[in-house]
């Protein structure tokens, strides 16, 4: 009865596709980047569901890589692109 999982993955895919509207529209750069993060989280869920649906446990490892790397892009964006320099004005501890 693994078609149920596949169906759920299928339902989650439009959630990603609709989120793309925010990338195209979103006024600030951070809005666009946030949507990329949504893609990461949604992608993890889709991969986990597909791994149950396609009966392929290897996909869980790919989900792990997704979870690790989607955040990396957001962090680089904040530190490098959006926030002036890497200098930190408020004393938010970086370590």
């Amino acid at each position: 009865m693994s078609w149920l999982h596949t169906l759920f993955a299928l339902i989650l895919l439009p959630a990603i596709a609709v989120g793309m509207i925010r990338i195209l529209r979103g006024p600030t750069a951070a809005d666009r980047m946030m949507t990329a993060q949504l893609f990461g989280t949604c992608g993890v869920a889709i991969l986990l569901l597909l791994s149950a649906g396609m009966l392929n446990p290897v996909l869980i490892d790919i989900a792990l890589v997704f979870a690790l790397l989607a955040a990396l892009a957001t962090l680089t964006f904040i530190r490098r692109t959006w926030q002036g320099s890497g200098k930190n004005k408020h004393g938010y501890p970086l370590s």
Binding site: A30, L64, A70, A71, T74, I78
Partner: peptide
Amino acid sequence: IWLLVLIASSASCHLI
């Protein structure tokens, strides 16, 4: 995986 996503997204949410 869930823990990783949790840590990553709450940290990047606060940063944004």
